[in-house]
Design a protein around this nucleic acid. Sequence first.
DNA 1: GAGTGGTCTAGACCACACG
DNA 2: GTGTGGTCTAGACCACTCT
Lengths: 250, 250
Amino acid sequence: MQQSPVPPEPPIYRRIADGLREAILSGDLRDGDRLPGENALMARHGIARATARQALSVLINEGLAIPKRGSGVYVRQFRPIRRHGSRRLSRDRWGRGAAIWDSDTEGRPYTVDEVDIDRERAEDPVARVLDSSEVWVRRRRYSVNGRPVQLSVSHFPAELVEGTAITREDTGPGGVYARLGELGHAPAHFTEELRARMPHPHETVQLDLPAGTPVIVIARVARTADGVAVEVNEMVLDAASYVLQYDFDS
Amino acid sequence: MQQSPVPPEPPIYRRIADGLREAILSGDLRDGDRLPGENALMARHGIARATARQALSVLINEGLAIPKRGSGVYVRQFRPIRRHGSRRLSRDRWGRGAAIWDSDTEGRPYTVDEVDIDRERAEDPVARVLDSSEVWVRRRRYSVNGRPVQLSVSHFPAELVEGTAITREDTGPGGVYARLGELGHAPAHFTEELRARMPHPHETVQLDLPAGTPVIVIARVARTADGVAVEVNEMVLDAASYVLQYDFDS
DNA sequence: GAGTGGTCTAGACCACACG
DNA sequence: GTGTGGTCTAGACCACTCT
């Protein structure tokens, strides 16, 4: 007969973290509220400093709290931007008020900084998809309300765009897609591949990410009506700043 | 005149973590390889145990390494499943060999366990979208090769599906969508909203997630040709097990 | 100046994995 | 049995924030 297994007591730091998480998720502690600090936890539970830190680090790594040096640990907030992928039909017909998650429905004014344009040898996945060993690369960072939210790296086959405005900082009215259209290579079909993972160090710096924040990586391939790939765009989004939406049929 | 700011030396634990990360990302350490343990780091760098642990915890929280009690810390691997959202046109015409990320292209045999079906009061976002205060809820967990990879919670308006196979464990041939079709409410339009975040504790348990693994949350709304919402499905995916793909036009 | 989080040391005991 | 990671104590010094 199976001995009823005794559930082991969770360690102290975990029980403290569970209590604080409960307070956050239940709404007892709200966005921006201050959590009890290290000293408060030490006194209240009679534990060592390292143990109190460990409890707080759980919540920080879960993305529920943010530490501020010399000040305290605070409940984190979530106010995402909504990014639309395919939206062909749904938008006006039943897009209103039907969202699952709250968001700033339309992207607030983006600012673009750290633009960087270069001609480079294509790396492997991009070279294969574009069928081109030389590419023009446009790197950008997007910010909303002064907070960086997205990194974008666009690749174009070098032979295709050589000498056009796509190789210059100002791409002119309508942007790169209008230029591709004038070249007779208007994008008509898109494929977006998505992943989520923890950020690499350079992403943490460029997006100013606190601990416990994943990134969403989108690799988008734009193809002409003939199926020729003309752009590969890899985007890295601060996951805490975005809700992505895709609408489709059948 | 601006004093050239002296970049402060990163702390020891960070420099050690940077070195190990470099070894992982460069391929010096490969999937499944063992990292130097706490004792090795203490000896090599002349540091205290807690500092060595802190260095390793950085990599663990980044999802690059996995600790195994009594054994060591190992380099983590990434072998995702590919999940297709809208795929109307692209699949056969230019889907082949054009992927950015490697994956098991078609989902390997899923197994379903922990099925749970209940009639419940609808919570707020779901109640609003389905315009229904009572819902039938189908909860499931999906596993691939014995590893849990996805949690799924489907909601249906209670009045609509009452007494049908949708309220029973075996939904019959074609599944719930076939049953909805027979009721004259065939789903025709889909909206998927996506987020990524760190998992909640119950998700960590049910998906057996190691630290440093985000989840992707998909809220999918199915609507009939008339625009009536007939299903809300909230899925929670182990982000390390998935690549999502969406294909669309214009 | 007082309080906060960030880093670090030097120990300790434990449960677990592996040979 | 030995080595591993998991938890915890009791200190210390620092940089930073807030008042």
